[in-house]
Amino acid sequence: MSEQINVVILCSWGATSSSLAQKVQEAAKERGLDVVAHAGGTGEFKEKASTYDVALLEPQVRHLKKEMQKVADNAEIPLAMVDQRAFALMDGNKVLDQVLELVK
């Protein structure tokens, strides 16, 4: 777990993902983990997917999951829905756990 982990959190228009990314970033800093949390829209993810190690999708864009999964598969990175409860609570720690679980 020495390499840097780049995680991207996707929502439709960037309204909430940047806040959540920030929360994840803070959690990682506290735990001394080398994680960089990005926020982005689903549109630009298509071009930049391969620059990340893992992607999380926010609930409001769940209907795009199928499409995003394809993009992620092409880029060979794992993609999952952000845990709903953690998202609702803006719980950076839990989301960070999820990230670590996914890149294992």
């Binding site: 228009w13 909430t16 926010e58 409001q60 864009v61 769940r62 609702a88």
Partner: peptide, 9 residues
């Protein structure tokens, strides 16, 4: 789940 997303947004 969807509702959470939309209301947060």
């Amino acid at each position: 789940e969807r509702e959470i997303g939309i209301m947060m947004h």
